[in-house]
Write a protein that binds this DNA or RNA. Sequence first.
DNA 1: TGACAAACGCAACCGAGTTGCGTTATCATT
DNA 2: AATGATAACGCAACTCGGTTGCGTTTGTCA
Lengths: 140, 140
Amino acid sequence: MHESSHILKGLKDQGHKFTKVRKLVLDLLIKSPKPLSSPDIQKAFLARKMPVNKTTIYRELAFLKGQGVIRELQFGDNTMRYEVTPDNHHHHIVCINCDKIEDVILEKDLDMEEKAIAQIKNFKILNHSLEFYGICERCQ
Amino acid sequence: MHESSHILKGLKDQGHKFTKVRKLVLDLLIKSPKPLSSPDIQKAFLARKMPVNKTTIYRELAFLKGQGVIRELQFGDNTMRYEVTPDNHHHHIVCINCDKIEDVILEKDLDMEEKAIAQIKNFKILNHSLEFYGICERCQ
DNA sequence: TGACAAACGCAACCGAGTTGCGTTATCATT
DNA sequence: AATGATAACGCAACTCGGTTGCGTTTGTCA
């Protein structure tokens, strides 16, 4: 399991500071079963009677993304969401009715496809986004 | 190849009107080599000295999407883009440097993966989004 | 040609995300 | 423990894609 203190220690060694906001943003993302948006995180701070300016959240997320600690996702609603960079490469399935989100792992990954595309299209492929949309068990 | 008049004729038979805006939006999407955003389309109208209100564009795109004539895509910049619903199921590869977009067709489609996920997760999968990001030939 | 609904324009609005700038808090050093 | 550098933060104002309500225009068909 991920441990925020350990990650923060690593960042600190690189000249970054260990702040309450940074720790809580990271803890929220580590504990959340699904990716969170910036507004989600701001609401979580508010619920804990720790109001934080939205600019701070955006900057913190940009920082953690830049450090490779978290990654950015989008699920079709023009809002960025974030999750701790996973060890196991996975994608997501989103219920278009109740917004439930679950991780899914492909039986065969896309490496071969990427190689083929890179060769045909002469692109250097860096990453990809793959999300599935449907109706979850409860909603169908 | 797609023919806007033919599509519009079909819509007209269902009680919808044949307007200049509708025809041009559709023609633009048919002719464009890459998906277009609502602002893209508004600019194209302006360039032809045919200023159109942005609300009209958004409503027209929502209409055409609802009719299944076009489909909605997103490439990570919080802006919806649209393309004519393709006959051949394809995805896209986006250059993160110059925003060049090309169609790509997978060697193996994701049907088997979808079936496996549907069974394991008990989701009824309706569709998916898959985009590749990288550096195009010119930019690398 | 008249009448009805679809399509349109306009203005005001919403919400995610950004920018500039001044202030505060963390941390290494003394 | 005091100090200074700078990362982190708050605040206000802003940008921009997208939406809503409402009154007006236009395409279509009888």
